[in-house]
């Protein structure tokens, strides 16, 4: 088995009220320079090693995400140690925040 991590986020441009609320919380703690917060969810699946990407994509499209409002990306466990922790590039999205 291998661990798959699916990151689901609201599409750019779709109002993220939860993100706004979190941003207000950060502001209350004094982190006023934070320019934007988007909140998503992370779903970890234990699946057979040979599961094809198309199957994972179908799961997202049919159920795990709502394609009208959400997008997703699939991360595969690369370390092979079955620690249920995918190797994720550090802050993959933060560079997009200006």
């Amino acid at each position: 088995m291998t661990t798959i991590r699916i990151i689901v986020t609201l599409k750019p441009g779709v109002l993220d009220a939860q993100g706004q609320a979190v941003q207000q919380g950060l502001r209350a703690l004094g982190y006023e320079s934070v320019g934007g917060v988007r909140v998503g969810k992370c779903i970890e699946l234990a699946v057979p090693d040979e599961m094809p990407p198309e199957t994972l994509d179908a799961m997202c499209e049919r159920f795990l995400a709502n394609p009208l409002i959400e997008e997703w990306r699939v991360e595969r466990d690369e370390d092979g140690e079955e620690k249920s922790r995918s190797r994720v590039p550090a802050f993959p999205r933060s560079r997009e925040v200006r």
Binding site: V14, L15, D16, A17, Q20, A21, Q24, N66, L68, I69
Partner: peptide, 16 residues
Amino acid sequence: LEAGLLPGAMLRNAVL
């Protein structure tokens, strides 16, 4: 909506 029997989707209330 989630079943696809009606069009569209729901977001959290804009008013937080």
